[in-house]
Amino acid sequence: MDKNSSIYKTVLLGVVCAVAGVLLAVVNSITAPVIAENEIAAVKQNLIAIYPDVSDFKDISEDALKDEETGLVDAVYQAGDKGYIFSCHNVGYTADGFTFLIGYNNDGTVSGYTVLSQKETAGKGSLAFEGDYVAEVMTLTAEDDMPLISGATITTKAVGEAVKAAQAVFATLQ
């Protein structure tokens, strides 16, 4: 068949796309379930880390976030009868932003503060998710503002903003 005829070209393009499509569908069917599992496992692991004794975590995001306007709270989990965990995100110094979990017991004390992902400047903004700062946050309540770190004010302000949004949702759940 003449290589330069339109029919040949269309058929070749079609075959290449079809092969690509089939190959991708196969790989997708292998990897998609693994990906879904990973995501559930990752979230559950973090929730259990905050409330190790709770076995039933309920995702109550749809109802709890109905009136949430800032968009900074992504999910709300009810930890049995002990409290709630909020998954929040915001953008700090780097464009990619960060996500974290903050948990409040029913009495308003902080039950946990864990970072899920962050790409803030190492040694500056990243301190908002490390040792000393985490320890300080654990002593706060749902009424307190998040402390600022000098030299990392942009990041900590952003964290504070997201936490305030979570606290507002917590107040409606009380």
Binding site: V16, L24, I30, T31
Partner: peptide, 17 residues
């Protein structure tokens, strides 16, 4: 199409594993 398919496959494997 060839390169994009390979990259998509790579992406799916990286995301999963």
């Amino acid at each position: 199409v060839v390169i994009a398919s390979l990259v998509t496959i790579l992406e799916m494997f990286l995301h999963a594993f």
